[in-house]
């Protein structure tokens, strides 16, 4: 009597088991991809909050700015506060104006140029903060699939080597290694897809915010230019 026992190959095929039976390279890749995913979402959450906050602050400043309040008064209230967005641009421009005008600037063209530069600098600094970590999202979005693919290739390589060693082409022997290897690609895509989508959306949002600030700075530059003409030229003419 011949007894044929069919060994049940590997009862547990949960994702956890797949992770633990993977080789160390694949494990490293998977851990890296999970970390990348965590970082991606951290950036996404952070940026969404920051952009929302910036949007609100821009709205509020525009409201205050166009309410007819005197610029001097507005500057006095904002100067000793920590400002963001348009407020920072306004404060930097007013600071430059005050420095130059109160010390008696001779050339209105030089004053205008300095104010514009100061505002550009303020916008750039603001946008630096806003667009700060979007580069990570871009890198993760483009690199994560490749990293996952690398893990898959390594995993399939080792599993095929193991199959060659076991000299069996049974699907039950082949399947776990390939499933475990494919898990790396799955994790890569899991990290990359939100990163790419979020990068596109966040950079577009940042562009919009930057455009709004540019628009304000142009408008404010025009207002200041008029003021320069009104206040500096008579003084120059008088002198």
């Amino acid at each position: 009597m011949e007894t044929v026992t069919l060994a049940a190959p590997g009862g547990d095929h949960s994702i956890w088991a797949l992770f633990w039976q993977a080789g160390w390279v694949v494990k490293l890749v998977m851990l890296g991809l999970i970390a990348a995913s965590i970082w991606t979402w951290a950036i996404i959450v952070d940026k969404i909050i920051a952009y929302k906050r910036m949007d609100v602050s821009l709205n509020r400043f525009e409201q205050v700015f166009w309410s007819g309040q005197s610029l001097e008064e507005l500057y006095r209230t904002l100067a000793d506060r920590k400002t963001t967005g348009m407020g920072a641009v306004f404060v930097s421009a007013m600071r430059e104006w005050k420095k130059s005008f109160e010390k008696g600037a001779k050339s209105p063209i030089g004053l205008q140029t300095r104010i514009d530069k100061a505002m550009d600098l303020a916008i750039t600094r603001e946008m630096e903060g806003l667009e700060g970590r979007l580069g990570y999202l871009a890198s993760i979005g483009s690199a994560a699939p490749f990293i996952g693919l690398f893990g898959t290739v390594v995993g399939i390589m080792t599993s095929f080597q193991a199959i060659a060693g076991s000299q069996s082409t049974n699907l039950a022997v082949v399947a776990p290694g390939i499933a475990e290897a494919l898990l790396a690609t799955a994790l890569g895509l899991l990290a990359a897809i939100p990163a790419v989508i979020a990068y596109n959306k966040l950079s577009a949002d940042a562009g919009k915010l930057a455009a709004r600030m540019e628009g304000f700075s142009d408008e404010f530059s025009a207002i200041l230019s008029r003021q320069i003409d009104e206040k500096v030229m008579p003084r120059a003419a008088a002198a």
């Binding site: 999970i34 995913s37 965590i38 970082w39 991606t40 979402w41 951290a42 950036i43 996404i44 959450v45 952070d46 940026k47 909050i49």
Partner: peptide, 10 residues
């Protein structure tokens, strides 16, 4: 805040 949210979510 973003990091803690992300870690918790993961």
């Amino acid at each position: 805040a973003g990091l803690t949210t992300s870690v918790a979510m993961h």
